[in-house]
Computed example of a mutant assay.
Amino acid sequence: MQVSMASTQGVGAANEDTVHVSPTGVVVLDGLSAPKDLPMGCVHGTPWFVRQLGTTLINLIGDEEVSLREALRAAIAAVNDLHRSSCDLDQEAVPASTVVMVRERGDELDYLVLSDNVLVLDLGADGIRTVVDKRVEEVAADEMRAALQGPTGTPEHAARVSQLVTIQRGLRNKPGGYWVAATDPAAADEAITGSVELARVQQAALLTDGASRLVDNFGVLTWHDLLSLLCAEGPAALIARTREAELADPVGERWPRFKRSDDATAAYVKIGQPASLASGAS
């Protein structure tokens, strides 16, 4: 497993994404932004939460006897213990994060996706498979459409986004709603998981929604194009191309979105030995 990665901050006060890598695993998290006018029950904030969760996860998935769901469940519980005494974790307004991770396990590549991060798998002759959990788009549909109405950056737009987040908080980690990593370890049971024969996987990409939008929001690239760009130029080039598109549409007229630019993180994974090792070169 050969991994390259890049992460850049969007228009917010801090980058709420994080990426963690080990010799056999990759974890990418996207913290859910909390509008400044809404309450928050955690004094540490979302960037702290995603760092703690990511660090715990990358350590736990190194044990092949632990399933990815079990690792996520244990990681959420462990982070709860880090700030339960100083924060109110029993309310809806707590830090939360999407999750996508992969782990080599023998001849298999295990994966887990929770909420709208994207995993892209290039399976060679079997084509490209994308794994994403879109349940968040199936709730509060009217408010979501209103929040996507531009122009971005105006007080009116910010108010609509705050209204959407308020409603979404009441639907997080509840039946009929959607699921994210927050304070309820049971959210891990709702994640999309699976395994692919490692020999079938040529390359993979783990993306936050700020890095996948050239395909699934803007429609200017295909998933094949995105993988080709990552292979040829790397994750930083993908994010740079994304920023160029966002700057060309700063108020969301062509591509409606919640903010002009989002935190963007991409991890690109190549499977197999480098050519020099495979050929026996020294």
Rank of each mutant, 00 (worst) to 15 (best):
D122Y: 04
W255A: 00
L148W: 03
T166Y: 00
L198F: 07
P151N: 04
E190G: 09
L247H: 14
D189M: 09
D249Q: 02
Q163G: 03
K134N: 13
E233V: 09
Q168G: 04
D216A: 13
R172T: 12
S195E: 12
E253H: 04
V132R: 13
P185R: 02
V196D: 06
C231G: 14
R257Q: 09
A188E: 04
F218L: 02
A211G: 15
A181I: 00
A211F: 10
V131S: 10
T193W: 12
A237E: 15
W179G: 03
I239R: 10
A188P: 04
K134V: 14
E253C: 01
G177D: 06
D184I: 00
A248I: 01
P151C: 05
L198M: 12
L226Y: 11
E190M: 14
G252W: 03
Q149W: 00
P235A: 09
A158K: 04
N217F: 08
G124R: 11
L206Y: 04
L226M: 15
D216N: 14
A187G: 12
E244T: 12
A159I: 06
K174C: 06
P185L: 03
V215P: 04
L198C: 08
D184E: 10
E156H: 13
A147V: 01
R254T: 05
P250V: 05
D142Q: 11
L164Y: 02
T222H: 11
A248R: 12
A236H: 07
V139M: 07
R129P: 05
A211D: 10
L221V: 06
R213H: 11
A159K: 11
R213Q: 11
N217I: 13
I192V: 15
A236M: 07
W223Q: 07
T166D: 03
P256F: 09
L247C: 14
P175T: 01
A146Y: 02
R243H: 14
V201S: 06
A181G: 04
G124F: 11
V165Y: 00
A186S: 14
N173S: 08
P250G: 07
A205Y: 12
G153R: 10
D184G: 00
G234W: 01
P256W: 09
P235E: 09
A181P: 02
R169S: 05
V132N: 08
D225F: 07
E197F: 02
D133F: 07
R169D: 03
F218D: 00
E246L: 06
T130M: 06
G124C: 13
D142E: 14
A182R: 03
T193V: 15
D133C: 08
R254C: 05
T166H: 01
Q202A: 08
C231V: 09
R200D: 14
E138K: 10
E156I: 08
H157W: 01
A240D: 15
A204Q: 05
T154E: 02
S228V: 14
A181V: 01
Q168L: 15
Q149E: 13
H157C: 04
E244P: 01
P155A: 10
S162A: 15
G252H: 05
R243C: 02
F218R: 00
I167T: 14
Y178L: 07
T193Q: 13
V196W: 02
A186F: 08
R257A: 05
P175M: 02
L164D: 01
G127L: 08
